[in-house]
Amino acid sequence: MDYSKELIDHYDNPKNVGSFEKEEKGVGTGLVGAPACGDVMKLQIKVNNEGIIEDAKFKTFGCGSAIASSSLVSEWVKGKTVEEASTIKNTDIAKELALPPVKIHCSVLAEDAVKMAIADYKDKKDS
């Protein structure tokens, strides 16, 4: 498959690889996908008292597009408010990485991961 330079860059040098302690204050975790489907993304955000995502980490099992999509969103969410981050669209991810049509689901998964991480953060804050 012919991939864009942007995608290969993220695959070769993924940004923000790693994990936060799940229980840590301000951390929200999104875990999406399924091993049986060939892709699993774990995206974590760390939100400060002002509601700004000051850091993010990811780990992904999946094809090159899945790894690049999660690396890209982990960059994009940083510095955004939780509300701003929740507006990230899969189509923007797909466009930035020039994903081939059969790989669009990877960008959908990345958007879902962001949404789920935010939901988890809010859940924990309210409880």
Binding site: M1, Y3, I8, Y11, G38, F61, C63, G64, A66, I67
Partner: peptide, 11 residues
């Protein structure tokens, strides 16, 4: 295990 085949080939 734990490494998807296409991403491995890309590497």
């Amino acid at each position: 295990s734990y490494v998807e085949g296409e991403s491995l080939m890309l590497g």
